[in-house]
Design a binder for these strands. Structure first.
Lengths: 214, 214
DNA sequence: ACCTGAACACCGTTCAAGT
DNA sequence: ACCTGAACACCGTTCAAGT
């Protein structure tokens, strides 16, 4: 909304359009994907959006897949920040961990197209982008770290943290994907499903038998 | 393999190529997707494969999305049969339920491209195909039924079966998708991850506290 | 160094025409 | 009723040429 104004501001007319076209291309791509979905992302459209030739992109990205990889990388960065924020904000304990789960699913539902690019079919962004891999790993580590810290507090049984992280990541990813794809019944309350699922998970990974049979 | 022979058999040369082109198109599409992925599925290629014009398909499917919907429907049918087989073969109890989980993930890993079409981006097959929805529901019901039967046996706590099914479906779907997309570390043992995950799930959904703290 | 614009090969889809 | 083949609008990508 407010950003739209910025592009109307004065710009050096007889210069190249952007001092940092690479960055502008990435932002335009993210914007298009979030608003209209991946299918609307054509190199022609993103070029037109920036007032630039459709082949100008090839100066900054090797091809469309590389552009999508950059979009995915940006997505993982955003997701990690959300997860860390939820964990900290929730008090780095069981409440914070549950908040992480909700934050994950909420992120996917708020940015479904962006989320799909992050976990793409391999059709798009089939490139083995090392920066993308690293950003994905960092997001995953936010989850692992939260598990380890809870294990230190005796809140979670001392299983292999990475295995536990894989388990929980799979769960929230599955909920997110099925919700995005509309696989659940129309009226399904995703937040409720997430809460109940995390409840079941906790009872499973708790070290002792909690007396909460209420 | 054996089916490849059939197409070499005598055919009425001066007739239309197929008595049931619709069925042949679907089979060719499934074959192409399983062998070469969705990106290789072009209407030109599938037509060429059957010795038919590229626009002949439009007599039998409204468009490419409808063809993909048929592929997805066939996939759900295959998946349901696998799930039911595992449940029955495992003795309709806890072992059978765990076998269902493994069968699900194994199906996805064996037919990754086919599985992706089933849970497509909405990019492809965005059509609201009622037959597809029904076949998907039938596969889901195989899971719900197994849960209800275990609840009757006292093997699972009496939560809402549909919610429990959503929870578990999300888990196995998440494991499958992340494994297909190569999101796990290269050497990751998916079968082991599935087993450990199902173990954690069971401890969570069991009605009583099992004395297996070994 | 950065961008343009024409060209190429490839799509899905349509439609008048054939049998 | 079923299929053909030319045509259309749309892609991503390349490359010689401009500044």
């Amino acid at each position: 909304m407010a950003n739209a104004r910025v592009r109307l501001a004065r710009k050096p007319a007889d210069q190249y359009h952007h001092g940092d076209l690479q960055r502008a291309l990435l932002q335009a791509a993210v914007r298009t994907i979030q608003k209209q979905g991946v299918h609307a992302l054509t190199l022609r459209a993103v070029g037109e959006d920036l007032g630039v030739s459709r082949s100008a992109l090839y100066r900054h990205f090797t091809d469309k897949a590389a552009l999508l990889a950059a979009v995915a990388r940006e997505g993982f960065r955003m997701l990690r920040i959300e997860l860390e924020g939820a964990w900290e904000g929730g008090g780095r304990g069981r409440a914070g961990f549950e908040a992480m789960g909700h934050a994950y699913v909420r992120f996917a539902l708020a940015q479904p197209s962006h989320y799909r690019v992050m976990f793409g079919s391999g059709l798009e962004r089939n490139v083995a982008d090392p920066e993308l891999a690293e950003e994905g790993t960092r997001a995953f580590l936010a989850l692992v770290n939260a598990l380890v810290e809870q294990q230190r507090q005796g809140l979670i049984r001392p299983d292999d943290p990475e295995q536990l992280a894989h388990f929980i990541w799979s769960l929230v990813h599955g909920i997110s994907m099925l919700a995005i794809d509309g696989a659940f019944r129309p009226g399904t309350d995703i937040e409720l499903l997430t809460r109940l699922s995390l409840e079941r998970v906790h009872t499973g990974i708790a070290p002792e038998l909690a007396p909460d049979a209420g």
